[in-house]
Lab assay of single mutants.
Amino acid sequence: EDGINLEEIREFAKNFKIRRLSLGLTQTQVGQALTATEGPAYSQSAICRFEKLDITPKSAQKLKPVLEKWLNEAELRNQEGQQNLMEFVG
């Protein structure tokens, strides 16, 4: 629908959760960090719904690039050390 690749979103949601957990981050931490930079659309409950795919494809499509960018950045910081990650997450 609307050129939205559901399979891709499903895959990303699954990987997002795995990668988030491997960084040792909670949904709350991700939500707080993103709410600070991106606004309330990225709250803990939004992250939770995204991971469960309990949102419309359109919403998922909107969240995905922001979550992807944030997660990549978080992983980079983590490679530089846990301290850097925690500063990034705030």
Rank of each mutant, 00 (worst) to 15 (best):
I9P: 00
K52S: 14
E87I: 00
R77H: 09
V66E: 02
G90I: 01
Q32T: 10
T56E: 12
G31S: 15
P65Q: 11
Q83R: 13
A46K: 06
I55F: 15
W70F: 09
L85K: 15
L6Q: 12
S22E: 12
N15T: 09
D54I: 09
L71G: 06
V30K: 00
S43M: 03
A36K: 10
V30T: 02
T28R: 15
A46L: 12
P57A: 11
D54Q: 11
Q82V: 11
Y42G: 02
Q82C: 06
K14L: 04
L23R: 08
K14A: 06
I18P: 06
A36Y: 06
A41T: 08
M86I: 10
N15D: 14
N72Y: 12
E87L: 01
P65A: 06
A13I: 04
F16L: 05
P65C: 07
E87Y: 00
S59T: 10
Q61M: 14
L76W: 05
L6E: 11
Q44V: 14
G3M: 15
N78M: 13
I4K: 11
N72A: 12
R19H: 02
E75S: 03
Q29P: 01
N84H: 12
R77E: 09
K17L: 01
K17V: 02
W70S: 03
K14I: 10
F50S: 04
F16W: 04
P65G: 08
R20L: 02
M86K: 13
E87R: 11
G31P: 00
Q83P: 13
S22F: 02
Y42S: 03
R77C: 07
I9C: 05
E87N: 14
E8C: 02
G39S: 05
Q29A: 03
F12G: 00
V30F: 05
S45P: 09
N78G: 11
D54S: 14
A33E: 11
E7H: 08
E68T: 08
A60L: 02
F50Y: 10
C48T: 12
I9T: 09
R19C: 09
E75W: 04
L71D: 08
V66T: 08
A46F: 06
E73L: 05
K17I: 06
R19W: 00
Q27C: 15
E80I: 14
E38H: 15
A74H: 01
L76Q: 12
L53K: 02
R49L: 03
G81L: 05
L53E: 06
L34P: 07
E51I: 00
T37D: 05
L34Y: 00
K62R: 11
L63C: 02
Q32P: 03
A74G: 03
G3V: 10
P57C: 06
P40E: 12
P65Y: 03
L85Q: 15
N5Q: 10
I9K: 01
E73I: 08
P40Y: 04
A46T: 13
T56G: 08
L67F: 00
T35K: 09
E51G: 02
A74K: 03
K64N: 00
E1D: 08
Q32F: 04
I18H: 10
E38N: 09
K52V: 02
L76T: 10
I55S: 06
A33M: 12
Y42L: 09
K14M: 06
A74Q: 06
E75C: 04
G24F: 01
L76D: 07
L6R: 06
L76I: 14
K64I: 15
A13N: 02
N5A: 07
I18F: 10
S43P: 06
E68H: 02
L25A: 06
S59D: 14
I18K: 14
F88Q: 15
P40T: 11
R49N: 14
K14P: 02
G81K: 10
Q32N: 12
T28Q: 15
R20Y: 04
G90A: 12
A41K: 07
Q29V: 03
K14W: 04
S43A: 07
